[in-house]
Design a protein around this nucleic acid. Structure first.
Lengths: 189, 189
DNA sequence: GTCTATATTTGGATAGAC
DNA sequence: GTCTATCCAAATATAGAC
């Protein structure tokens, strides 16, 4: 039935509302049920446990990110694509701190994503790696450097200027710095 | 009495043991009391609340970091000092994920550091800013770029290679990349 | 200063009626 | 499929005896 899927989606939406307002760790089944007009035990008709809800949120967040990435069409300027992609990522992180915490930090004791959900996260990662390789940076070291810089911009933006653009507007500069550095040091021991 | 201070320190040590083993959010007064051989209510003789314990841990963590920084004596090569300082920071973060979470992320609902504890964190920040200025990078933009890169290396090291050196060993390269970039783009609009 | 006892709240999860 | 009732566990915090 589509009805069931609609209810599951409604529950997830309410869960996002709660974690955005109260913090990721503050999610409780009672609050969640109240918000969708149910009693708490009824939630178990839709999700097997609280962690199953976190897991569905994890997968959904990664699918959102994947959707934005795939919507970006590649141009004939892969460096420009890198800038756009990096900006997309930092914006995605900055617009929802709770989601960022769920997707990229491991702060909920006892929760870890299921293999199926984690597969979506891997897809995102591989897509990013592909874009980077297409720009000429296929080595593992390049990808490690790249992820560190994008992660750092995101972390600082969220932690020290939520809602602002203080680190977001450094994205282009960082990408250029990276590209120049990697180009200059190409193929050296 | 020094006895009281010794007991407070013992409690803090036990709290660090717990969060390192179980996660920052998994700290409970019952477990903590058991570990120091008390009943839970007795802890209130030493700390007013659970958040007061988090607060003391926050201050202690920052004092540890500050101590390591001040132990680094400045040389006549400020760029080299930057490398050493950045490595120190990433190592400090990587060696204790729970401490990193407490000091640099805001994941405990309802906890925020007291002004006194936060003052220590500011001291750390100012010290880093001073080192960076001494190397010739005094602009706010430079500091923002710098913190993003160091934070990114730390975050990736903790999240994706705990106990390893995969991002730690990129520190020197990142510092050089930063220095070359900032030097090249110096004094431009 | 430490304890026992307990208040109070909150939470995840299950049983079983309807 | 939703509810009520409840279980069970865990948690912070307080009161008051010793």
């Amino acid at each position: 039935m589509a009805r069931r899927e609609a209810t599951k989606a409604e529950i997830l939406d309410a869960a996002w509302d709660i974690v955005r307002a109260e913090g990721l760790a503050a999610l409780s089944l009672r609050d969640l049920a109240k918000r969708v007009g149910m009693q708490a035990p009824s939630l178990y008709q839709y999700y097997d446990s609280k962690n199953a809800i976190y897991d569905a949120m994890f997968a959904e967040g990664n699918r959102q990110l994947l959707a934005r990435y795939t919507k970006l069409r590649e141009t004939d300027d892969p460096i420009r694509d890198l800038r756009v992609g990096a900006r997309l990522f930092v914006e995605f992180c900055a617009e929802d701190a709770a989601r960022y915490q769920l997707l990229f930090q491991r702060t909920i004791p006892g929760f870890e994503p299921s293999p199926e959900s984690y597969a979506v996260a891997l897809e995102v990662f591989d897509l990013g790696r592909g874009r980077l390789a297409r720009a000429g940076f296929a080595e593992k070291r390049a990808m490690d450097l790249w992820t560190a810089m994008v992660a750092g911009l995101s972390a600082q933006q969220i932690a020290n200027d939520p809602g602002g653009t203080r680190w977001l507007r450094l994205v282009d500069e960082v990408v250029d710095m990276f590209v120049q550095h990697m180009t200059r040091n190409r193929r050296r021991p």
